[in-house]
C-alpha cells in the first residue's frame, strides 16, 4: 500500500495542507486589515499581490493546497462513515469530545460553500473580470458589505472557520506526530488564540464596512 493512500498518509496530507492554509490565512487577514488603515495602502497591497511573480506562482500552490485538503477531507469522511455501517441507538459523544472536533466535515463543507461565493465575488472579479471604470479593489472589497445579508453570511462563515481552525490547528500537529508533554498544551493555547483572531479579525472588517456608512 502506498504511503499517501494509507490511513496515516492521508492524515499527514490533511495535516500539512491544513498548516499551509493556516499560514495563508494569516497573510490574507494581514492584507485585509489594511482596509481599516487606508484605501490607498490596501489598493497598493492588493496590486502587489496581483502582480508579484512569486505571489502569482504561489497562487497555484495555494489552489493545490485547497484541492488536496478538501478532496482528502471528503474521502476520509466517506471512509470513516463506511467503518461504522450500524449506528448506536443511544450515543453520548458530548461526554468525551468537543463539538468542533466532531464537526470538521460539517464546518469544512460550509466553509467550502463560503469559499465558492467568496471566489466568485472577489477573486474572479479581480483576476478575470472587468472592474467598472474608476472602481478600485478597495471599493469592491468594502462595497459588498453594504448588503446586510451578505455581511451576515460572511460573519457566520468566519465563526464556523473559527471552530474549524480551533480543532484543526492542534490536530494538524498531532497528526504530523508532534505531541510533547511540555509543548502540546502550548500548541492548543496558540491554536485557540489564532482561531479567535481569525474569526474576530475577518468579522471586524465585514462588520466595520457594513455599518461604517
Amino acid at each position: 500500500m502506498g504511503f499517501f493512500t494509507s490511513s496515516i498518509g492521508r492524515k499527514i496530507v490533511m495535516s500539512l495542507t491544513g498548516l499551509f492554509l493556516i499560514t495563508f490565512l494569516i497573510v490574507h487577514l494581514g492584507v485585509n486589515l489594511l482596509t481599516l488603515v487606508s484605501a490607498e495602502l490596501f489598493n497598493e497591497a492588493s496590486h502587489f499581490m496581483a502582480t508579484n511573480p512569486l505571489i502569482q506562482a504561489m497562487q497555484y500552490v495555494l489552489a493545490l493546497g485547497f484541492v488536496l485538503h478538501i478532496s482528502q477531507g471528503i474521502i476520509l469522511q466517506i471512509r470513516n462513515k463506511q467503518a461504522r455501517p450500524q449506528n448506536y441507538a443511544m450515543n453520548k459523544p458530548a461526554t468525551n469530545s468537543s463539538w468542533s472536533s466532531r464537526s470538521m466535515i460539517l464546518t469544512g463543507l460550509l466553509i467550502l460553500l463560503f469559499l465558492i461565493l467568496h471566489l466568485k465575488d472577489y477573486f474572479w472579479v479581480m483576476k478575470f473580470g472587468e472592474m467598472p471604470a474608476g472602481q478600485t479593489d478597495y471599493d469592491l472589497v468594502t462595497g459588498l458589505f453594504q448588503n446586510k445579508l451578505y455581511t451576515l453570511i460572511y460573519v457566520a462563515s468566519f465563526i464556523l472557520l473559527g471552530f474549524h481552525l480551533d480543532h484543526g490547528f492542534q490536530s494538524a500537529f498531532q497528526s504530523a506526530g508532534v505531541n510533547h508533554r511540555k509543548y502540546t498544551p502550548m500548541i492548543r493555547k496558540i491554536g485557540r488564540v489564532y482561531s479567535l483572531l481569525m474569526a474576530l479579525g475577518f468579522s471586524l472588517i465585514a462588520l466595520y464596512f457594513s455599518f461604517a456608512n
Binding site: M1, S6, S7, R10, K11, L76, R79, N80, Q82, A83, R84, P93, N96, S97, S98, S101, R102, M104, H167, Q170, S171, Q174, S175
Partner: peptide
C-alpha cells in the same frame, strides 16, 4: 493490516 480490516481514520477528537 489495520487499514485492511476496515477501521476508520483518526480525526483527533480524543474520545
Amino acid at each position: 493490516q489495520m487499514d485492511k480490516e476496515g477501521f476508520g481514520n483518526c480525526t483527533n477528537t480524543g474520545a
